[in-house]
Design a binder for these strands. Structure first.
Lengths: 329, 329
DNA sequence: CTGAAAGCGCTTACAG
DNA sequence: CTGAAAGCGCTTACAG
């Protein structure tokens, strides 16, 4: 290598100079650094990774960016990883059939760990990753019996808390704007809500409409639900982004009041939920804590340990889109 | 390599099997594939990149995620790159002093190209990248005299169009909620607005308050501006996220009407701007087109070509937060 | 502390 | 079409 020649030392010496903790005399290190500066030398990570078996790259799979909650997860992960000089390699597969191919490509890049948000993993790929000692962390989804870690908010707890709140606010007629039922989180939130409603009241039918996990979808779903007969006085939106659409439809299109005419609760606590125009009561998705646990899991010294499942308690963020117990309509 | 041994062929043969376009007999390819399947073989990108000098990785530097516009840029870039089987390696430096170190790390990963959103690059690093044939494209910022490409919306044009709109809406007293003046985009937008106001009217003082580029900052800045004497009837917000905060402050804290009491215009056209609660008139940041050009620039066959500067015309998105010419207050 | 040498897992002329 | 060999830019025992 040119630097070694210019400095008149061995190749090993320049390698040691750029490897913290190696034994080099200050004199030699100085000589090497000077030569490196002259040649604008930049170490080649690929070559070193080939030997050390570490790339300091973590692969992250995200389904999309339309829901702010994914940006939040990405942002927090990126910040925390940057602190320990690791980088995020981003993958956004178009559809579920791409999943295996995407995972395969992650492995080709020799990433140190794989983080999967809101998607699944085949047992075949899970085994492959496990066999290669690449830890896999699922965010917001549990894959029982697979050798992958899992970190998520307790959707059941969240659904229950949401239902209890609307019930205590005097809710009698309920609607749910739901999302893609292939996401376990959606199913769990909905099940918990329904179960809680059934136990407490004897409710025969709850209007459930798919909100497509978007603002626009939430808007349309709210229109449909609220125009039906037996108009709900309480509306669950399985994600905040749909709740924002629903609130806008309720207020600006249907000219109803929130929470007087209808209480609205969401899930996630995206930044917009706190905007004064919405002031949405919601069940927070614990992004900070999830990423905190993710960080621990990907840096486990013993990757072959049994997979861990971490469940984080739901936190209710009460704002003004719901009624409190003592001011029922 | 194990696969070669199991298949009873040379190492070169398995390499060829996994390199599209190589000359391998179907028979041999089949034998190799079978062995690979048995061993769950995954090609090592690092090793091949070491030779081919291509990693298919593009580095992206983002300042933060609090402004949705960066998520939009990231999302669009990720999608477009995924289509051609390239990946995004993410870097979010904490502060400007990290910039050089961050760029250095990008080069260590041997990325094929570097994309920098809303940050700067030192002439030293620009020269280094150029010397190594790594194209650099700046998003939303122009670095004259440096060997880097630049793609941005025409901030001057945007500022002018915004000013003309508020002027034609009958604006007499103006306020500006500005942002970090180290971002050229902010400076350019503001200059264009001021210049246009000065030329058209003879306006002595325009209230200018820093909105910190956040919702909360915009909220506070609006309070300050609107409570001052000679309350503006027209408010420019240099980014949409600040405009949302300003609108909430104006409506819910000050109980004023938009646009009757005060017209509000933003910049960027983030998704929230279209929400019915806001319906914010804004100058769009042409994310799609910017990324489109970025894609062209990073895949130029001749990276040593003179740097290109692409300026995209501003597009006014007129919604209901501004007054039109024929219904002045 | 330092250097020569082997080797990480591939690709690519070069012969055949 | 196929294989042997050199080499990409590093790290890491192993001697000294």
């Amino acid at each position: 290598m040119d630097v070694a020649r210019l400095a008149g030392v061995s190749i090993a010496a320049v390698s040691r100079t750029f490897t913290p903790g190696s034994s080099v005399s200050p004199k030699m290190a100085e000589r090497v650094r000077k030569a490196a500066r002259q040649l604008s030398y930049v170490p080649n990570n690929l070559a070193s990774s080939l030997i050390t078996q570490r790339t300091n790259i973590v692969a992250l799979m995200l389904p999309n960016f339309v829901n702010q909650i994914y940006s939040a997860l990405l942002s927090e992960a990126s910040l925390r990883l940057e602190e320990i000089d690791k980088q995020l390699l981003l993958f956004t597969p178009f559809n579920d059939s791409d999943l295996d191919r995407t995972l395969q490509r992650m492995l080709e890049y020799q990433v140190d760990a794989i983080v999967i948000a809101a998607a699944s993993i085949s047992s075949h790929m899970a085994a492959l990753c496990h066999g290669r000692d690449v830890p896999v962390v699922m965010l917001g989804r549990h894959m029982p019996n697979l050798p992958v870690h899992s970190v998520r908010g307790n959707a059941e707890d969240g659904g229950t808390k949401a239902a209890k709140l609307l019930l205590s606010g005097g809710g009698k007629r309920f609607g749910i704007i739901s999302g893609d039922q292939t996401y376990m989180t959606m199913v769990e939130r909905q099940q918990a809500i329904l179960q809680c409603l059934r136990v407490t009241n004897d409710i025969e039918n709850v209007a459930i409409v798919d909100g497509k996990l978007t603002y626009e979808g939430g808007y349309q779903a709210a229109l449909e639900i609220m125009r039906g007969e037996d108009r709900p006085d309480s509306l669950f939106c399985l994600t905040d982004i749909m709740a924002l659409g629903a609130m806008d439809a309720i207020r600006h299109n249907l000219n109803l009041r929130i929470p007087e005419d209808v209480a609205v609760i969401g899930f996630d606590d995206i930044p917009e939920a706190a905007h004064e125009s919405y002031n949405l009561t919601t069940v927070r998705t614990p992004v900070r804590q999830m990423i905190h646990h993710m960080m621990d899991l990907i840096s486990l010294e013993t990757p072959q340990d049994p997979p861990q499942t971490i469940l984080i308690d739901a936190e209710l963020i009460i704002r003004s889109s719901t009624r409190s117990a003592h001011n029922n309509p």
